[in-house]
C-alpha cells in the first residue's frame, strides 16, 4: 500500500462514568489533546472518519454529536459503524486514494449512558437467539467454556491471564480503575475475567511523514450464529492476521495490543495471531484494562504507535473487533520509520 503514517495519537483517561462530558465534550477533549501533542489544527485536516455505535449512544446517526468538535462542517466526513480499527481502514484508504492528504480519525464510546447487556442482546438474531436472553457476557462465557474444554485447561488459566492484564493496566495512567471481584459472572468467567464497560475516546491523525507508518492490515468476518462457529477456535482471526502480515511484509512483531473482551480471549486471540512468547502482549493492559465501546480497537493502535515512536520495538500489531466473541476481526501492522 501507499505509505500512510500516523502523525499523532491521543486518548482520554477511561473510566466507568463521565457525567461531566457529553459526546461533543468527550470528542472535543480528545481531539484538542491530539492537536496539542502534534501542533496541528483543524485547518490542516482534510477529512474526518469517525467510529461510534448508534445503539450505545442511544442516538441514530450518532456521529452528529461530534461534527463540530471534529471540525467536520464544510469538509468531507464519514462514519464507520464498527470499532475504530475498522474505521482506520477507510481513513487510510481516503489518503492512499490520493484524494486527501490528512485524515482525523476519532472514536468514542460511553457505556455509562446506556445498558450494555440489553444493547448486546439486541445484537443477536432477533428470531432465534434474542429470546433466550443471551448477551455479550453470556456469549463470552460460552466461548471461555468451549476454549477450556477443547484445550483441556482449568479455569485457573483465566484467572492468571486476568491477573497479568490487571498488573499491566495498573501501570497505565489511562486505564479504567475498577474494583472487579473474583465472583462468578458468566460461567466459567468471573467478573474480573471480563473486560470492563468504560467511557472514553481516542483520536489519531493520519498523513504523510509521521514517525510510525501503517504497514499492512487484514480483516475478515465470520458467521453470525454462534452455533456456526467453533467458539473454542480463533475463527477468522488467523485469516485477518496473515493478510496483515503479508501486506506489511512482516513476519514477526515486537509488541502487540489486542481487544480481549475476556481473559479467555487474551489467550485465544494470542493463539490466533500466532504470537510467540517473546512478543509483549497488551503492555497497556489491553481491553481488559479499558473497553470504551468502538474506541477500544483504536486505542490499541494508539498504544502500539506510541510505543514504537518511543523506540520500544520496530514493528507492532494492533487488533480490533466488532460483534460477539470475535465475529469480525481487524489486524493492523505498524512499523517505525527508520
Amino acid at each position: 500500500m501507499k505509505p500512510v503514517s500516523i502523525l499523532g495519537v491521543a486518548q482520554t483517561k477511561h473510566c466507568a462514568r463521565r457525567d461531566d462530558a457529553n459526546y461533543m465534550e468527550l470528542a472535543f477533549e480528545v481531539i484538542q489533546d491530539l492537536f496539542r501533542k502534534t501542533g496541528w489544527s483543524h485547518d490542516r485536516v482534510d477529512t474526518i472518519i469517525s467510529a461510534s455505535s448508534d445503539f450505545w449512544d442511544g442516538r441514530t446517526i450518532s456521529e452528529i454529536a461530534i461534527q463540530d468538535p471534529a471540525g467536520a462542517p464544510g469538509k468531507s466526513a464519514s462514519k464507520v459503524s464498527m470499532d475504530g480499527a475498522f474505521a482506520l481502514i477507510y481513513a487510510a484508504a481516503r489518503i492512499a486514494s490520493g484524494a486527501f492528504k490528512t485524515c482525523l480519525v476519532v472514536a468514542h464510546g460511553k457505556a455509562s449512558e446506556g445498558e450494555p447487556r440489553a444493547i448486546a442482546n439486541a445484537g443477536f438474531d432477533p428470531l432465534f437467539q434474542r429470546p433466550i436472553g443471551i448477551d455479550d457476557h453470556t456469549a463470552l462465557g460460552l466461548q471461555a467454556r468451549r476454549f477450556l474444554e477443547k484445550r483441556g485447561m482449568l479455569g485457573s488459566v483465566l484467572a492468571e491471564a486476568a491477573a497479568q492484564s490487571a498488573a499491566a493496566a495498573a501501570k497505565n495512567p489511562n486505564a479504567h480503575r475498577r474494583a472487579a471481584k473474583h465472583v462468578l459472572a458468566a460461567d466459567p468467567l468471573h467478573e474480573d475475567e471480563i473486560a470492563p464497560d468504560s467511557d472514553g475516546a481516542c483520536a489519531l491523525l493520519l498523513g504523510e511523514g509521521g514517525p510510525v507508518e501503517l504497514a499492512g492490515f487484514g480483516c475478515a468476518t465470520d458467521a453470525h450464529q454462534l452455533g456456526e462457529r467453533d467458539l473454542g477456535d480463533p475463527g477468522v482471526l488467523p485469516r485477518a492476521s496473515l493478510e496483515a502480515h503479508r501486506m506489511a511484509g512482516v513476519r514477526e512483531v515486537d509488541v502487540a495490543e489486542i481487544h480481549d473482551a475476556s481473559s479467555a480471549q487474551t489467550l485465544l486471540w494470542r493463539e490466533g495471531l500466532g504470537l510467540p512468547e517473546r512478543v509483549a502482549l497488551n503492555p497497556s493492559g489491553g481491553a481488559m484494562g479499558a473497553q470504551p465501546g468502538f474506541a477500544t480497537g483504536l486505542v490499541r493502535v494508539a498504544e502500539v504507535c506510541e510505543r514504537l515512536a518511543r523506540g520500544e520495538g520496530r514493528t507492532g500489531l494492533a487488533h480490533g473487533m466488532t460483534g460477539f466473541v470475535g465475529q469480525a476481526h481487524c489486524v493492523w501492522i505498524l512499523r517505525r520509520r527508520s
Binding site: T60, I64, V80, S81, M82, G123, D125, H224
Partner: peptide, 20 residues
C-alpha cells in the same frame, strides 16, 4: 453482522458505514 449471510461476507472483509 446479522446480515452477513445475505451479503456473502463470511470470510471476507466487511465494513459497515451508516450515516443516516
Amino acid at each position: 453482522l446479522w446480515a452477513v449471510e445475505g451479503t456473502g461476507g463470511v470470510g471476507k472483509p466487511q465494513i459497515k458505514v451508516a450515516t443516516g
